[in-house]
Amino acid sequence: MEWHLTMASDSPIFVSIVVPVYSGESYLRSLTSQLDAIRADWRQRGLPVDLAEVILVDDSAIDGSPTIVDALAGEYDFVTALHLMRNFGQHPATIAGILHSSGDWVVTMDEDLQHSPSDIERLLRRAILTSADIVYALPSRGVHQTRLRDWGSRGFKKLMVLLTGNTNIQRFNSFRLLRGSLARAASSVCGHETYFDVALSWFTRRVETVKVDLKDHRFIETGRSGYNFWRLLTHARRLLISSQVKIVRLFGLIAVATVLVSIIGSLWLLIERVFFPSPTLAAGWTSLMLVLLFFGGLVTFMISLVLEYLSIIVLATHGKPIFFAVDRSIDRPLAAYFATESR
C-alpha cells in the first residue's frame, strides 16, 4: 500500500482567546456571546481564520464568576474553564491561559468588556499586513475618563521607560494579539517575578499598535478599578526586576568618569608640585579628595559591574532566550484574504 506523508494544510488559522477572570460575573455572559457572534461572523464571511477557543481563567474570583465560567464551558463547546487554586494575579492567570492554548494567534483581553471583541479583527489585520508578532491595543483617548488617573497611568509608563530603556513599555496593554508560538514560548520562560510583556520583548521586536476606543466601564460606572497605588508599585518592581535596568549602566559610567577625573586631577597636582611649586594653605586636602574620588569611583564601578553580572544571571534565570525561530508562513492565507478584501 502506498502512503504519502503529508501535513494537514487545509486547516484554517486558529485564534485562541484568553480571559483572566477575577470579578466578572456581570460581564462574562455578554463577553462570551459577543465572542460567539464574532466566531459566527468569521465563518459566515469565509475568513480563513477560526476563533477556535475561549479560555476563561478563574483566578480564584471573588464573586460568582467560577459558577458562570463552568456554566459557559457547558453551554459553548469552544469555551474552556480553567480554575486556579488561589488568586495568583492577572499576569500569572494570563500565562496559565496561554499555556492551555494551541491557537496560531492568541488574544488576551479583560473580563469587563473594557476590550471590545469586535476589535480583534483589527488587531489581526494589523498583525498580518505588517508581519508583526505582537499588536497592542492603544487607547485612542482616556480609558478611565478622569484626567488624573489617565495622566498617572501615562506618567508611570514614561518613568519606567526612563529607568529601563525599554520603549515598548508605553505600548503595554492587557488587550493584545500575540503570535501563538511567541505567546507560549514567553509564557514558558516566565517565572514568579517576570513581567510578561518584558518577556515577550525578549523574543521579538515586531511590535505594532492599533488605536481602539478603550473604556474602563467598571471604573466609570462604579469608581472601582483593578488598580491601586500598591498594585502600581508591584508592577513597577516587577518591570524593573525583569528588565536590564538602564540606571545601573548610568552609575557605571558616572563611576568611570569619576575615576578618570581623579586620575587627571592627580596628574595635574603632580605636575603643579614638580614644575610650579607654591605654598599651600591646607596641605594634603586636595590629595585626600583625589584619593577619595579615585577609590569612590572605583568601588562604584565595581558595584555596577557586579550589578550588571547579577542582572545577566537574573535574566538568564528568568529564561531570556538566546534565540527563537519563527514560521510566519502560516499568515499567508489570511494575508491573501485581506489583500483581496481591500481591492
Binding site: W3, L5, M7, A8, S11, A52, E53, S102
Partner: peptide, 21 residues
C-alpha cells in the same frame, strides 16, 4: 489525529503516516 488541533467528538480520524493508519 496527527496534524489536527482542538480534536473533539466530531473530529474525524485522518492519519498522516503508516503508524496512525
Amino acid at each position: 489525529f496527527e496534524g489536527q488541533r482542538f480534536v473533539n467528538r466530531e473530529s474525524q480520524a485522518r492519519p498522516l503516516r503508516p503508524y496512525g493508519a
